[in-house]
Design a protein around this nucleic acid. Structure first.
Lengths: 220, 220
DNA sequence: CAAAACCTGTTATACTATTAACAAATCATT
DNA sequence: AATGATTTGTTAATAGTATAACAGGTTTTG
């Protein structure tokens, strides 16, 4: 039952499957069943089989899935067979931490340029990444043909900076600010709202009882 | 239609509503309609009305919602009327950045203790937060009655450290490591998987067309 | 080789979430 | 006070997600 468009929920789990398949492969495992995989990724085995089935028949009945085959399949599907360059805007505390985060090792993603208003760090190299002034941003993004940006600027600058990013032809923004930015519909925004997540965790602890089935699941 | 248990999807949006209500209140706004709120938080107005209705009739037909009333209601509901202390385990790059993140200002959450294996920083104060050695962790968490932890240790230590956290009686873990940890069902885990989110964003850009309705929504 | 054990892919079902639509109520205006 | 403009709260319709169950195969074992 091969489909062109995969459910959003499934798409969100793909990188997780890929990561764990890598672990299994590196551990020398040849095959894996949906039940085994379920135990490590904490996703119901039926959900895993359904997720995989959107891509066709990847497994073998009575056997399971061949780890290497599956790994290679997802590598292509997730575009992990070539390096993806992204930029980071706002080299503050969080920005700095992300410059040091090794996206390349597991995900073949590299932060190849950073931007900041602070004239003291513009022009320097931070954690191996060249930092440019904001004035150069639109230009550099175009030259370097980057279309994905990690946004770690102060909340009050989020909207203005985002509008500049649109000028630069950016297609996706991973938004770490607490603001919901207004953008054209063809630009995809992925909000990573840390305070929100923590607050939600607290809310769940306060309002959902211990025997609640929710507690068996882990949230994204 | 007052309910005791609110849908998970609704619960996740509450902190966002609360944050924006604060903005509106501080801007001197007295009332707000679901349509107005919808424009700033990027959530359908019908969804907002439905979300609010789980808590009873908070608004007035033909008028909208009284900002102050709504704000105070959510303040209580989200436990933001008192300070919540949490701990952070693993003072690396990301850990450090989170110590500097001001959770208290908007969310009345404070990181009141941190823990790290590095003997050079154990015993010091980092960004205003005392750092303890890992040997003291279980004891300190019990003494300080902390039941929520932000986990920013290296991936390979995630499971072992988590098991210690269980010993300390922790009830919730915000897991920044790329590992899915195995824990008793009564402990709630909120996974914040940065590489995963970035990878998902890339997948969406590659596989969903511009005219796709998905692009009008913003992901959590 | 036959029987038992195993495991996928899919069908059927249940659950969860979103959104359109509108009656009922309030507000603003003349 | 009557009319028209708003806006909620909810009902009904739709969309999206998860999972149980099992037929149809494969592998393993006696």
């Amino acid at each position: 039952m091969v489909q062109t468009v995969i459910p959003k929920a499934t798409a969100k789990r793909l990188p997780l499957y890929y990561r764990y398949l890598n672990f299994l492969y590196n551990a020398g495992k040849k095959k894996v069943s949906s039940t085994e995989l379920s135990e490590v990724v904490k996703v119901d085995s039926a959900t895993i089989r359904r997720d995989f089935s959107y891509f066709g028949a990847l497994g073998k009945r009575g056997y399971g899935y061949d780890v290497e085959t599956l790994l290679n399949f997802f590598k292509k599907t997730l575009n992990q067979d070539h390096l993806t360059n992204v930029a980071l805007v706002g080299v503050g505390n969080l920005g700095h931490a992300l410059l040091n985060y090794n996206f390349q090792q597991t995900n073949n993603i590299r932060i190849s340029a950073a931007f900041d208003v602070n004239p003291e760090i513009a022009g320097t190299i931070q954690s191996g990444v060249p930092v440019y002034a904001m004035d150069d941003m639109v230009n550099q993004l175009k030259i370097q043909q980057i279309d994905i940006v990690i946004l770690t600027v102060p909340a009050e600058d989020a909207q203005a900076v985002s509008e500049q990013l649109i000028q630069a032809g950016i297609k996706g923004i991973m938004n770490f600010t607490p603001m919901r930015i207004s953008l054209p519909a063809n630009v995809r925004v992925q909000n990573v709202d840390l305070a929100n997540e923590l607050q939600t965790l607290i809310y769940f602890l306060d309002h959902y009882s211990k025997k609640d089935k929710l507690h068996h699941l882990q949230s994204s």
